[in-house]
Design a protein around this nucleic acid. Sequence first.
DNA 1: AAATTTGTATGACAAATATCATATTTTAAT
DNA 2: ATTAAAATATGATATTTGTCATACAAATTT
Lengths: 227, 227
Amino acid sequence: MSSKCEQCIVRQFSSLKALNKEELLKMAECKTSYIIKKGEPIFEEGETTNGIFCIKDGVCKLTKLSANGKDQIVKLVKPGELLGQRSLISEEPTNLSAVALEDMEVCFIPKKEIMEFFNENNQFSMNVMKTICGDLKDADDHMVSLAQKSVKERLAETLLHLEDTFGKNEDGTLHIQLSREELAGMIGTATESCIRLLSEFNKTGLIELIGKKIAIVDRNKLKRMSE
Amino acid sequence: MSSKCEQCIVRQFSSLKALNKEELLKMAECKTSYIIKKGEPIFEEGETTNGIFCIKDGVCKLTKLSANGKDQIVKLVKPGELLGQRSLISEEPTNLSAVALEDMEVCFIPKKEIMEFFNENNQFSMNVMKTICGDLKDADDHMVSLAQKSVKERLAETLLHLEDTFGKNEDGTLHIQLSREELAGMIGTATESCIRLLSEFNKTGLIELIGKKIAIVDRNKLKRMSE
DNA sequence: AAATTTGTATGACAAATATCATATTTTAAT
DNA sequence: ATTAAAATATGATATTTGTCATACAAATTT
C-alpha cells in the first residue's frame, strides 16, 4: 500500500506544491518508492526514464562523462527536488547520470501522470518552468566560472557553495561528504590539483582538514579569494 | 501600423508556432519593432525586460561579464529564436546581456500578452518549456567542455559548431563574423591564445585565414581534434 | 590480523595557458 | 589624406595546471 504524498517533504519544496488533493491522490496511487544505496545510480546517461523522480531523502550528483573519461559533476540535487524533468519534457534520453552520494529515498512518478498534471494544472507547469529556468541560470553562472576563473578561485567558490547549500556538522565540517575526486569533478580539475590546493588552503588557515572532512575557517578570506 | 505576425520567420521556427490566428492578431497589435545596429545592446545584464524579443533578422550574442572583466559568450542567438524567456518566467532581471553581432530586426512582445498565451495555450507553454530544456542541455554540454577539454579542443569544436549553425560564404569562410576577442570569449581563453591557435591551425592546414575571416579546410581532422 | 585495494598526499617535472611587450595591419576619425 | 585608435599577430616569459611517480593512510576483503 502506497503512503500518502500530501505531507511529503518533496511536495513542500518542489513544483508539486501546486497539485491539489485529487492530483496528490492520483500521484500516491501511481508512484513507486525506491531505496538507493550510496554509490548506486538512479539512472544513467543515455537511459530513457519515462517519468520523474522525487527526492525524499539523501543527496545525489548529476554527472556527465567527458571524452577523456572523467566525470564532470553538473549539479548536486537535494531532498525536495525533482529529477529527470528535462529529458521528460524534451522527450529525449537523459544527458546526465544521477548517482547517490548518500543512501537515498526516492519516488518515481510515471510520465503519463506528469503529463496529465501539465495539461490540467497551469500552476504546476509554471512551477516546473521556473525550476528549469533556475537551473539554466545556475548553469550559465557555472559556465562563466569554469571559463574565466582559476582552479583556486573555483575551489574557494565551491567550498562556500557547499556549506551554504548543505550546511555543516557540529564540528564545523561540511555536511555533504564528497571524495577529493568528486570535488575535483565539480570544479573541473585533476584530483591531485584539488588535493594540493586543499592542502594549501589548510596551511594558510582558510580551511581545516579533519581527516577527509573539510571545515571552513575563514569565510571572508575564502569569499575574497573566490572573486 | 503594425505588420502581421502570421508569415513572420520567427513564427515558423519558435514556440510561437503554437499560436492560433486570434492570438497572432493580438500579438501583431501589441508588438513593437526595433532595428538594432551591430554592436548595440538589446538588453543588458541586470535589466528588467518585461517581455520577450523575437529575432526576425541578424545574430546576437548572449554574454555575461566575469569578475576579471572579460565577457563570456554563453550562447549565440539567430533569427527565428526568442530572447528573454528565462527572466520573464523567473520574474527576475536578466542574468545576461544581448548584443547584436550584425544589424538586427527584432520585435518586442510585452509580458502581459505572453502570460496570457501561457494561460490559454498549453501547446505554447510546452514549446517554451522544450526550448528552455534544450538550452539547459546545451549549457550542460558546454560546461563539461569548458571543464574537461583543452583550449585547442574547444577551439576546434567551436569552429565546427559555428559552421554547422551559421553556414559559410561562397569563399568557404564562416558566415558569422566574430572578432578574435569574441571567439576567445566563446571558448573561454585569452584573446592572444585564441589568435595563436588559429595561426597554428592555419599552418597545419586545418583552417585557412583570409584576412579576419576563417575557412574550415579539413573538417575531419578538426572533428578528431575536438574530441 | 594480514593482505589487498582504494583514497589521500606530495614531489618532480612537463605541458598548457596567461601575461606582457611590441610589431603590424586594419579600421575609424579628423 | 593623415592621424589616431583598434584589432590582429607573434615572441619572450611567468604562471598555472596536469601528469607521472611514489608514499602513506584508511577502508575493505580475505
